[in-house]
């Protein structure tokens, strides 16, 4: 997401040198990497909950209703007219302001908060 100010390419996306968020780290180090059989394992109480929480189930009535609500909340002046009148030819998308519904980020922040309490 960060816009770089150097380099020759357009630099829409800059590579981060290391994972910044806990969710990213958890993805990488909890069930990946070399695993050994004979060792004492640090207990990771709480962490498994995070990974499960992060893997949201898509197919549920709650999700459907939330999507319906999200679609209804959209403010799409252009598409609205087209949708209602079913005159989809010539309608212009993209008149909305993206980024407002930063659900994903919100989720990550929420997860981070959860673990802060150790």
């Amino acid at each position: 997401m960060a816009i770089a100010t150097h380099g020759t390419a357009s630099n829409y996306l800059q590579r981060a040198p290391s994972p910044s968020g806990l969710v990213d780290v958890v993805d990488l180090i909890l069930d990946k990497g070399l695993v050994l059989d004979a060792y004492i394992r640090i207990s990771v109480i709480g962490i498994e909950l995070i990974t499960i929480d992060a893997r949201i189930v898509i197919a549920s009535i709650d999700t459907y209703l939330r999507f319906a609500e999200a679609v209804n909340r959209l403010d799409l002046t252009q598409t609205e007219v087209a949708g209602l009148a079913e005159l989809r030819e010539g309608s212009k998308g993209g008149s909305f302001e993206p980024g407002g519904g930063d659900k994903e980020k919100g989720m990550y922040e929420g997860l981070k908060e959860k673990v802060k309490g150790d």
């Binding site: 999507f67 319906a68 999200a70 679609v71 209804n72 959209l74 799409l76 598409t79 609205e80 087209a82 949708g83 209602l84 079913e86 989809r88 309608s91 998308g93 993209g94 909305f96 302001e97 993206p98 980024g99 407002g100 519904g101 930063d102 659900k103 994903e104």
Partner: peptide, 25 residues
């Protein structure tokens, strides 16, 4: 990840049934 508002707007725009149901609800 999709930007929610953008992808939902795209779906409303490109799927007539979604647009109609949206208008109705």
């Amino acid at each position: 990840f999709y930007v929610e508002e953008a992808i939902l707007a795209e779906i409303v725009e490109q799927n007539g049934r979604v647009a109609r149901l949206r208008a109705a609800t």
